[in-house]
């Protein structure tokens, strides 16, 4: 799906990412974890094709990502940021329609009417009743669902999530992740997510990429990556890793000093 080879990114002389190589297969769900400033967001920017690496190469489906046109790229990759949608008085439905932008001609028309498709998205995300409500009147959880609806309308084959659950309470965190999971199950979409919540990452991601000081600190399954030593090395905190009572996946407990 997407491959990066010896990629580095510098802002002026300051390194944000150094010599990273990584391969993501179609259909996988990856989590990128690491402390603040370790290069997670930079990596996501490079993967989205908006920024060019200082050196190295990012390839999407075997082709240099910088050779894609913007609309062409938006039909393949969608990005959801932590703040989701800004305060705007566009309605939920209008925002979902904006997700269709890469498919529209200059007059805003598509070959087929996107209406039924947008309806089905809103049904899945429990947004149907809110469709004519302006986004600035939605609660945080509703707004993030609308943001998810917009990227679903984009019909990408790769979804990039940048700390999408940051501003949500635990109910909406779980709801959001479950919605992404069922979308993935239906369409086989590839997901790469930057997550701060290691326990959510463990339960939803197939594989984790660890970043530390702008470099890779290992990749593998959550069970391989979420170890007490790794977390001590990367985050400088003491933890206890216990298996989740329901599914046996590793869960991180913080240890007070």
């Amino acid at each position: 799906m997407i491959t990066i080879q010896h990629v580095s990114k510098y802002y002026d002389d300051h390194p944000a990412l150094q010599d990273l190589s990584w391969h993501v297969k179609a259909g996988e769900w990856w989590g990128i974890i690491g402390p603040n400033g370790s290069g997670k967001s930079t990596l996501l920017q490079l993967l989205s094709g908006v920024e060019a690496p200082t050196s190295g190469r990012v390839e999407l489906e075997g082709r240099n990502i910088r050779t894609f046109g913007r609309k062409e790229l938006a039909r393949k990759i969608a990005v959801l940021q932590q703040e989701g949608l800004p305060q705007t008085n566009f309605t939920v439905r209008e925002v979902l329609e904006m997700g269709r932008y890469p498919f529209q001609n200059w007059r805003g028309r598509e070959q087929r009417d996107p209406g039924p498709f947008l309806d089905s998205i809103m049904d899945k995300l429990e947004l149907r009743e809110l469709q004519h409500r302006p986004v600035d009147l939605l609660s945080g959880g509703q707004r993030q669902r609308a943001a998810l609806g917009k990227v679903m309308a984009q019909e990408p084959s790769l979804l990039l999530l940048d700390e999408p659950t940051t501003y949500l309470d635990i109910r909406y965190q779980l709801q959001f992740m479950n919605m992404v999971a069922s979308w993935r199950k239906e369409t086989g979409i590839t997901v790469i997510s930057v997550l701060h919540d290691l326990n959510l990452a463990s339960q939803f991601c197939d594989k984790l990429l660890l970043l530390h000081e702008n470099q890779s600190a290992g990749e593998g399954s959550p069970a391989q990556m979420l170890t007490e030593e790794n977390l001590r090395d990367i985050f400088r905190v003491d933890t206890s890793i216990v298996p989740h009572p329901c599914n046996g996946l590793p869960q991180v407990l913080l240890v007070r000093q």
Binding site: R70, A74, R75, P86, T88, E94, M98, Y101, R107
Partner: peptide
Amino acid sequence: WSRSRALNLLSLGERQASHMGLN
């Protein structure tokens, strides 16, 4: 007027607009 949909996208923020296919 023909760029008005693009201006709508831009109102969501420059980065978000570029992720949605806007140059």
